[in-house]
Each structure stands twice: as C-alpha cells, then as structure tokens.
Design a protein around this nucleic acid. Structure first.
Lengths: 232, 232
DNA sequence: GCCCTTATGTCAACAGGGTTGACCTACCTG
DNA sequence: CAGGTAGGTCAACCCTGTTGACATAAGGGC
C-alpha cells in the first residue's frame, strides 16, 4: 500500500509536454502496452516511454511511483481487456474454460507484459471484477465458500502459470525461442537409445513438446475438478 | 544452437585470476547459484559474479557466450539438483507427484533463477535425464507413445508454471511481496457487497488466495490424468 | 485580468546493468 | 627453450531505473 495513492488519479493542471502531448495515467498505460509489443523484447522502459510520449522519462514518475506501480496498472488493464464483455456459460466448466482462454489470449498478445503481470496481485478494479466473476461461477455450480475459493485459486494459478510460461517463451529473442523449440526435433532426437530408452520409444512424438499444452492441461484440470465436485 | 559449443567444456591452459582463483564453468555456475540467493532480488549479475570470483566480469564470457547461455547452464544444474537420487514410486501418479514436489522445492529454493529457468529448454544432460524419467513413468503406466508425451507435456508445464509463479512472487522485493499477499485480507475485504456479491459470500475464505495452490492443483490434475488414463 | 501557489514537465546526474574489442601475459606444446 | 594462443584484464559503449533541483505555465482567488 505504502503511498499507493499519493499520486492523484485526477489532474487539475494539465500541462502539455514539450512535444505537445497531454499526459495522463491512461495515456501512459496505452503507450506502454503499445511499446511492449511494437519493439522487441525489453521494448518497454521508462526512457523509451518518455521518447514515445515525447516527454522526459522522469515525467512518468509524476503518474506512477515506480515501474512496479506502472506494471500493476498495466496488469490490471490487461485483466480488464481479457474480461471485457465476458458472459459465463451456464455450464460451470465451460464458463471456466472460456475465462481461461480469454486470459491466455490476452497474455499471449502481450508476452512481455504477461511475465510481469501473471504473478502479481494488482488489487485494482478489473482484478476485483475478474475474481468476483470466477468465484461466482463456482458458487453457482454448487461449491461451498471454502471449496469455491480453493477451486478458483488452483484454477487461476494453473491458467496464469501456463500462460506465463508460454508468454515467457514468446518474449524471448527470436533466435533463443527458435533454438528452444528446435530442441525437441533436434537435440532430443540425438539422445543415445541405450541411456535414454523412454525417449527412444517416443522419439517420433517428441515434437509435441514444442507446442502448447495449455488446452490439454486445462481440460485435464477441469476433468479433475468435475470429479472433485461430484464426489463431495 | 548457433555456436552453442564454441566454448570448449574442458580447458587445457588453466590460468588463475588476479585473485588466485582458477575459473571453470562449474565454479562459475556454483558461484552464480550462491549469489542468487545470498543477495536479494537482482542479486545475480555478470559484474557481481566477477567480484565474487575476484576476476574481471568479462572473464565469464570466456566460459559462456552470454548471460542467456549461463542461465541455461544454471537451469540445467537446478534440474540435476532436483532429480538427484530420485527413484519413482511404483504407482505412477505417486511417482509424478514426487517428481513435481522435487522440482518445485528446488525452484522455490532459488526463486530468482526459477523465473529464468522454468520457461526454457536447456537441451543439456540433466534435462535429458529428467524428461527420460518422466516419460518412462508414463510408458510404464501404460500410456502409449503419443499419450505419454502429451501427458508429460501438460504435467511438466503445469508444474513449471505453478512453480514459476510462486517463485516470481518470492523473488519480489519484500515490500511488494507482502503488499501482494496482504491484498486478500485487506483490499479484497473492502469490496462493496452490492457490486461484488460473490466476494462477499466467501469473504472469510479469501485469505486462502494468499497461500500456495500448488499441491491442490497438482492433485486435481493427477485426478484428471487418472481419469483420462482409465477411460482411454 | 492579474498574481501567487504549486503542479508538473525538464534536466543532469548517479549507480548499476550486459557486452565488446584491444591488449598482454603466462601457460602448454613441440 | 621458443612460439602461438588461451584466457584474464581493462576501458569503453550504451542501456536501465531513479532522484533532486529547477523552471514554467496553469488555474483559483481576488
């Protein structure tokens, strides 16, 4: 918390930058989101932000206490983007599935921000609403208070964990990402059969490791959750 | 791959640093691992590494092409550490569970490295062996080649995703981590009941969100996997 | 319509980061 | 013992977040 609201949300004196831009928290977040996927990895920095807004980098600190503060605001923006217009399916597992896919889609669209955002608690409006939505789905499904919170917790962490992992891979410089992907059809194909018999046995299936396990994992998790729900 | 083995693993001419230390890839990795959890977040840097080894920072580049190369080597070291002495249980779900807990324990012990390591493919010996072990467990359980790879993929990504998330939280500066944790017993307790009825209904259970969902998620995932295995 | 306060943009500086190319020296091979 | 070169060192480059002093224009009170 410590001074989290020392920076006023509403400004009275609006003064344009040297480049004629009228700064605002929203504009800064917009620009940050744009920067982060226009430029390559590490594309987002206070200095680049300053350049993009044609203002001095330090002006950002008039709107956010630190880059961490800015990151949390960005994270909340992404959550809002993910959940905008979401109406949960009547079937609770389908509802959770839909929510998971939305969150993943947004995080993959902003891989570099995803890494920062996924593990944080923004404690801001959009996150409040998302948690409200998720818990409501589970309560309506018949989970008790404790069960709903437990289920939501493991669900959302699984979704965020997978998404963060995929995003981190996407956020790598091209050369590294491709090298990582090639590993399964390359280095892993060259492991000696005698010392790695299991790898040898599945050699022609290893390419699957290069892709995403998100939906498969999600479906298995929901299968498990359904079973837990049914059996008490 | 590009030049991945341009740096020879074995050295002939061993020449001590000004501080009298005989460098080696292993010693550098050792020191890096130690640094990363002796000092706080951002405790690991090439320059600090140089200081700890009493050598010039740039000497590290004689052993690793870049920090990324070093990070992969560290990741592989952690995998080795996690799997050392691991003997899978006869029950395949118990075996996977044991493997998951080991990986998580090591990643949580080195939170800052975990964030770097979890999403990468080290394509090095220890990782080869770990994948071999995991696939072997699933083949022995009766999964076919494709099923074993699919199951391993979604299993390991779930484990790594959760572990990375927890590690990222642990790697935060104390103030930020505590603020994130407090959110559930603090900011989330203050959401208006009328706009957030589900949150209101589970208010006294929300504190659970602050802890770890790892084991709960793991158990639900294994439950799901068991069902998938049984029904096909 | 002016003046004062102060919010807010600007500037310069600091400490730290990865990486590179030139240098030089001590080691190993022959 | 001589020569070639691996490998440690040094200085430089450009990047990063952050801070404190500074200046200026905005807007409220009169």
């Amino acid at each position: 918390m410590a001074g989290a609201n020392r920076v006023p949300a509403e400004r009275r004196r609006r003064r344009p930058t040297r480049g004629g831009v009228l700064l605002s928290a929203d504009l800064i977040i917009d620009t940050a989101v744009r920067l982060s996927h226009e430029h390559g990895p590490e594309g987002l920095s206070v200095r680049r932000l300053g350049a993009a807004l044609s203002c001095d980098p330090s002006a950002v600190y008039r709107y956010f206490h630190s880059t961490d503060d800015l990151h949390l605001a960005i994270a909340d923006r992404l959550i809002g983007e993910a959940m905008r217009g979401f109406t949960p399916d009547d079937d609770w597992t389908a509802a959770l599935r839909g929510m998971a896919l939305r969150i993943r889609a947004v995080l993959l669209a902003h891989p570099r921000l995803a890494v920062l955002a996924a593990s944080r608690v923004t404690r801001r409006e959009n996150e409040f609403r998302a948690v409200e939505t998720g818990i409501a789905i589970l309560l309506r499904a018949g989970f008790g208070a404790a069960g709903a919170v437990r289920a939501y917790h493991l669900f959302i962490d699984t979704v965020l964990g997978h998404a963060a992992l995929e995003a981190a891979a996407l956020a790598l410089p091209d050369a590294r990402r491709e090298a990582d992907e090639r590993a399964w059809t390359d280095a892993y194909q060259s492991c000696p059969d005698d010392t790695h018999p299991a790898l040898a046995a599945v050699r022609h299936e290893l390419h699957r490791m290069g892709g995403s396990a998100f939906e498969a994992a999600l479906d298995v998790l929901l299968t498990g959750l359904r079973q837990v729900h049914a059996s008490g």
